[in-house]
Amino acid sequence: MIKIWSMKKNEEAAAKKKPKTSAAQIRVQKDLTELDLPPTMTTVFPDPADLLNFSLTITPDEGMYQGGAFVFSFVINSNYPHEPPKVKCTQTIYHPNVDLEGNVCLNILREDWKPVLNLNSVMVGLQYLFLEPNADDPLNKEAAEELRKNREQFLYNVKQSMRGGYVKGVQYAKVNV
């Protein structure tokens, strides 16, 4: 066998020994403990010992969705950050970029995810969807159509849905706080 150890001896790093924690775990610890969230966002851990499953509540303080509390579930797997976290809206909400099943159209959650991004970037991206709903990337086509054609009506629909009311035959979750 080649004598690798003799090369090792020359290295200053000879004393390195890492604990038995997965790289994904350490990365999540780093991401979470360095979260820099505005007061409009709060994380909730159903099991504080489990960092890989939690929810995020967004309460926008401006824009069309002001006054609502929107809850997203985060599921992180052991391939993080090679793979993005899986994020879903847990309520049925009226939003051009969120469908009735809670799927979210946010580029950094899918096609534009990179390992250099972190949980903070995902959360800030989600909040941005409530400040600037985007009619060009629709998941709820009707909502997008309304936003593009008639902003007043869209705003009315948003308010109606947030009260737990019906919009075009669909009942939405009451998210007003």
Binding site: E83, C105, W113, D137
Partner: peptide
């Protein structure tokens, strides 16, 4: 990265 398509493209 694994190929992923924008979810809105898939949907619409």
């Amino acid at each position: 990265k694994p190929t992923a398509f924008p979810i809105c493209t898939i949907a619409n």
